[in-house]
Simulated scan of single mutants.
Amino acid sequence: MLLRKRAWDLMREDVTRGVRGENLIFLLRRMQAAIERDADNHVAVIEDSHGHYLGVITMWDVVGYFEKQIFQRDELVDFEHADWDKAFATACRLSCHIGVEKLMRQHGVPCLEPTTPMILILENLQRDRRDWALVREGEKILGIVLKTDIFQEIGDEVLQVF
């Protein structure tokens, strides 16, 4: 099984997608809907208008961005007496109209070929301490493999043996 199953067998095609130039608020809605369906599905692929891969945004990229925006507020200099609710609301108002490229990551994104065997996927995810990898063919993203997909596959196999 570990050599027989490939990335294309394990991947899910329901990747959240965004387009260059799109406002972050619209992508956030789709990301939240994906996370509600499956908490591990927290990655959005950003593409150009032709569907070519440009980068990714994860929920941690969004959280980190908002954290930076909140702590950049001048009114938070006095940590003890700061109005955190006001700072968060201001950061939200100012940030939700930015383009997705502002948060998009292009480097260090885990990508697999569709034919990558499951044993190598597992090894790469564990080595890099990742819980997901994109399945990419040229400039197109075909899908995503999540750690839960691998666990499910291994669990099904183990339960069949017993």
Rank of each mutant, 00 (worst) to 15 (best):
E80R: 07
A44F: 05
A91S: 14
V56M: 02
W60E: 15
G108M: 02
M104Y: 07
H107Y: 15
Y53L: 02
D61G: 11
K68I: 05
A91N: 01
C92Q: 07
L103P: 03
S95C: 06
F88M: 10
W60P: 01
D85T: 07
W60N: 13
Y65M: 12
N41C: 12
H107M: 09
F71S: 04
Q106H: 07
L54E: 01
H50L: 05
I70M: 06
F79I: 09
A82R: 05
T90H: 10
R37P: 01
A44C: 14
K86Q: 10
I46H: 00
R93W: 05
R73N: 12
H50K: 15
A39K: 10
F88A: 12
I35A: 09
D78S: 10
A87E: 06
A39V: 13
A44H: 06
K86D: 06
H97Y: 09
W84R: 14
K86R: 15
Q72W: 10
V100W: 04
N41D: 13
Q72H: 15
K68N: 08
Q69A: 15
E36T: 09
H81F: 04
L54G: 01
H81R: 12
F79S: 03
D38H: 13
D48A: 09
L94A: 14
V77L: 11
Q106A: 14
H97Q: 06
V45S: 06
E101F: 09
H97A: 03
E67W: 08
I98A: 09
Y53W: 00
S95D: 06
F88L: 13
F79K: 10
E67T: 14
D74L: 12
E47S: 06
R93I: 03
E80T: 03
A87L: 04
Y65S: 10
V45T: 07
W84C: 04
G64H: 13
D61I: 13
A89K: 11
D40R: 12
V63C: 12
Y65Q: 06
G55E: 01
G99W: 06
D74W: 12
A89T: 06
Y53F: 15
E101D: 12
R37M: 07
L94D: 15
L76P: 03
G51W: 02
Q106P: 00
M59T: 11
F71K: 15
H52N: 13
